[in-house]
Every structure is written in structure tokens, then in C-alpha cells.
């Protein structure tokens, strides 16, 4: 690891001040992704601001009846939190589908959202990668691209976002609380991550010196009808080829609300609200789920090694919705 300097911030304001005062600085909390990337020279910060002492490590009730997850709560403490398990089991399942127990004990909720892609070429400093070194080209487009995007990619980058938690949060319409030099703001999780376009080096829409302080879960947790379906090459500790977070609100067999977010297919969790709306007022059934699945992958384009993911996504959506609706055939 390259040498760097270090400060330990005592509160959010000090953290924002420290990150601005040092060039090429990064926040560090769990460190499970950043230190890994620093060891192999993919990320080369010259200064780290330790934010683990900030008072952002609690889960609290919100006035609207939801939960606020402090940015520094670990993934394990979130997934196993009594209220999360009870009211947002979709989120628990999504978190526990990712990483290992050791990593989840250390990784924080905000850090999970800000982890970098696991594109093989992003990790391999001997190859071209527009995300790692803008302007060098994308090795994945014509290389081995099994875990790459089928939706929303650009000619500059076909990387996927690796987080399972983010996919669960996308289905829950979570909100991200952020503090920066200009003060606080809140953004929907759908606006946190971005598509690669011409600037794949940018994973998110956060400002340079902004820090995530919390994640808010709205009251609707879909605790009755949900599933997190993850397809991967190993039974455990592998990133998703295609994952589906599905939540349904069903009354008398009729769907009142449907949420579907896909992981492993794009640079961000993939939602299509207009396709979800197709299910409103409909009966929960395979016949009604199929057109939604078709709509979700509309415009998908695969590459040499990942075209199978288009059909996999389509079938996974139907299966996830069937599971969430508790329909057995």
C-alpha cells in the first residue's frame, strides 16, 4: 500500500472540512473495499479521513413511521436488526446475500452503496479501463464480460454495480441523506448511482466533498410479499449475475403496488416504474407478471459472454414475483 496521511474526524462537520482541506482525500469507514483497492493500486488516495468515530451508528424510527439507518451501522447489524428483519425483510435478505460474515461485520451501510464495481479489468491495472483511467478505453466490451451490464451501458463502460443492499434499497424507494460544504440534502436512491455515459469514472451523483450520513426507509416495507432472488456462479460469496428485489402489496389477490429492482445488470440498480405500474390493479399471476418482465429487459443488449443474462433476467423477474406473491404452480 502506498503511504498516505490520516486524520480522525470527530463529527460530520470536521469530516467535511478535512476532506476539503486535503487533496486526493477519501473517507474511510469499514475499509473492506477501499483498502483492497489501495493494495492493488487501483485507488491511490494521498489522505484518508477516518469517519468511524462519527455518531452515525444507530438505527432510529422516523416521524413518518419508517427507519433511519445511520451511515456507519454495519451491514451485519442492519440485516439482523429486529425492526429491519420484521418490517423490511427484503433488505435483510438482500444484505445477507452479499459478501461474507466477516465483511458484513465491518462494512458499513453507506460504504456498501459506495463500493466500486468488480469488473475484472477495473481491478487489473495492466489493462485499459475508462473507470480507472479515463480515456484509456474499455477492455470488457471485447473481453471476458460475463458479469457485465446488459442495460444502460455505454461504449465507454459496461461495468455493473455490485451491491445487493443497493438493489434492496432501490425496491424500497429509500432516500439518501447527504451533508456537504453547502449543507444537507436528501436524494432518492434512484438518483444516487448513475449510468456510465461519457464519464464512467463517476459512480454516483454525490458531490466531491459530500458525505452520506443516513439512509431513510419509507414506512412501506413489503414485509408480507417480498423476495430477493440472487443468481450467481457459487452458492455463497459471489456477486450477482442477475438479482431481483421484488416487493408486492396485495389485497384480495389484487396488486396495489409493485416494486422490482434488478442487480447485476447495470451500472446502478435497475428500476422501471412504468413497468411496475402495469401490475397495479391486476391479479397476481404468471400471465400478468410475464409482460412486466419483458418490459424490464426491453432495449437490453448483451455482449459475447453475457447475452444469456437477458433471458435470465426475464425469467428471474417472473420467478421472484411468483415467490413474492406466494403462488405455487
Amino acid at each position: 500500500m502506498r503511504p498516505f496521511t490520516y486524520t480522525r474526524a470527530k463529527d460530520v462537520a470536521a469530516a467535511v472540512t478535512d476532506i476539503r482541506a486535503n487533496s486526493e482525500a477519501r473517507f474511510i469507514a469499514g475499509g473492506t473495499n477501499l483498502l483492497d483497492l489501495m493494495k492493488i493500486d487501483v485507488m491511490k488516495p494521498r489522505h484518508l479521513v477516518d469517519i468511524t468515530r462519527l455518531a452515525l451508528d444507530t438505527i432510529e424510527e422516523t416521524d413518518e413511521g419508517g427507519l433511519r439507518l445511520g451511515a456507519l451501522v454495519t451491514n451485519a447489524d442492519t440485516a439482523y436488526h429486529e425492526q429491519v428483519e420484521k418490517r423490511y425483510p427484503l433488505l435483510s435478505h438482500a444484505i445477507l446475500a452479499g459478501a461474507t460474515a466477516q465483511l458484513r461485520n465491518k462494512a458499513t451501510d453507506a460504504g456498501n452503496l459506495l463500493q466500486r464495481t468488480r469488473c475484472y479489468y477495473f481491478y487489473d491495472t495492466d489493462t485499459a479501463c475508462n473507470k480507472r483511467e479515463p480515456g484509456t478505453g474499455c477492455s470488457a466490451i471485447s473481453g471476458y464480460n460475463r458479469n457485465h451490464a446488459i442495460l444502460g451501458h455505454s461504449e465507454h463502460c459496461i461495468a455493473t454495480h455490485p451491491s445487493d443492499m443497493a438493489v434492496g434499497l432501490a425496491a424500497l424507494d429509500a432516500r439518501i441523506l447527504v451533508t456537504g460544504p453547502q449543507g444537507e440534502r436528501m436524494l432518492p436512491i434512484s438518483d444516487l448511482h448513475r449510468l456510465p455515459g461519457n464519464t464512467p469514472e463517476k459512480d454516483t451523483n454525490l458531490g466531491e466533498n459530500e458525505i452520506i450520513t443516513a439512509i431513510e426507509l419509507p414506512p412501506q416495507g413489503f414485509a408480507q410479499h417480498f423476495t430477493y432472488l440472487k443468481n450467481r456462479d457459487r452458492a455463497s460469496y459471489a456477486f450477482a449475475l442477475v438479482s431481483v428485489a421484488a416487493g408486492l402489496e396485495i389485497e384480495g389477490g389484487v396488486i396495489r403496488e409493485a416494486r422490482i429492482a434488478l442487480g447485476g445488470v447495470a451500472h446502478k440498480p435497475w428500476r422501471r416504474p412504468e413497468a411496475e405500474a402495469m401490475l397495479r390493479g391486476k391479479k397476481a399471476s404468471r400471465e400478468n407478471f410475464q409482460p412486466v418482465a419483458d418490459a424490464y429487459v426491453q432495449g437490453a443488449k448483451g455482449f459475447e459472454h453475457n447475452t444469456f443474462k437477458i433471458e435470465l433476467a426475464r425469467r428471474s423477474i417472473v420467478r421472484a414475483l411468483m415467490t413474492a406473491a406466494k403462488i405455487e404452480e
Binding site: I28, G31, T32, L35, D36, D50, T52, Q102, L103, N105
Partner: peptide, 18 residues
């Protein structure tokens, strides 16, 4: 893997100073 305040973690991905 070690136990840090009783929890199992990867010591390779942890800075001592933190």
C-alpha cells in the same frame, strides 16, 4: 480472521490506527 471486540473480521482489510 480475528475477533475484534468479539466480532469476526478480516484483519487484512483493517487499518490498525482505526
Amino acid at each position: 480472521t480475528i475477533l475484534l471486540d468479539g466480532n469476526r473480521i478480516n484483519s487484512c482489510l483493517s487499518l490498525a490506527v482505526m
